[in-house]
């Protein structure tokens, strides 16, 4: 692991998301509760909808284009839809959001 500080928890609205550009593409950081964050690919496997723009509910996100629903824990599409988005290690250290640099393709520390 190579934890990189990417911002303050309040930079992300509650039940909202922000993007981080990484070597593996755009990663969405979702804030599902006061102190609960997830990181996953921003790109919907259906038709590339931007998942960071979806509605967050519980620990799931609904794609804004055609309503596929993904569990942020596993990245798996829910219900009848089949597909998976990549998820990445992310954690909170107090108010700071830390993303695992290695998982998103960054070799050295910032």
């Amino acid at each position: 692991m190579n934890w990189i500080d990417i911002g303050h928890i309040d930079d992300i609205p509650l039940r909202g998301a922000r993007l981080v550009k990484t070597p593996v593409g755009c990663v969405a950081i979702f804030r599902t509760a006061e102190a609960e964050v997830f990181a996953a690919s921003n790109t919907c496997p259906h038709k590339a909808g931007p998942l960071s723009e979806g509605i967050l509910h519980g620990q799931k996100v609904t794609c804004p284009l055609h309503n596929w629903v993904f569990d942020l824990n596993t990245g798996e599409a829910q219900g009848a839809d089949e597909g998976r988005i990549a998820t990445y290690p992310v954690r909170l250290d107090g108010d700071r959001i830390l993303l695992d640099g290695i998982a998103v393709g960054k070799r050295s520390a910032a």
Binding site: K21, P23, L99, A110
Partner: peptide, 13 residues
């Protein structure tokens, strides 16, 4: 600000 990415890790890479 919210309309921009939170961070850009590609630059440093």
């Amino acid at each position: 600000r919210r309309f921009h990415p939170l961070a850009d890790l590609t630059l440093e890479a």
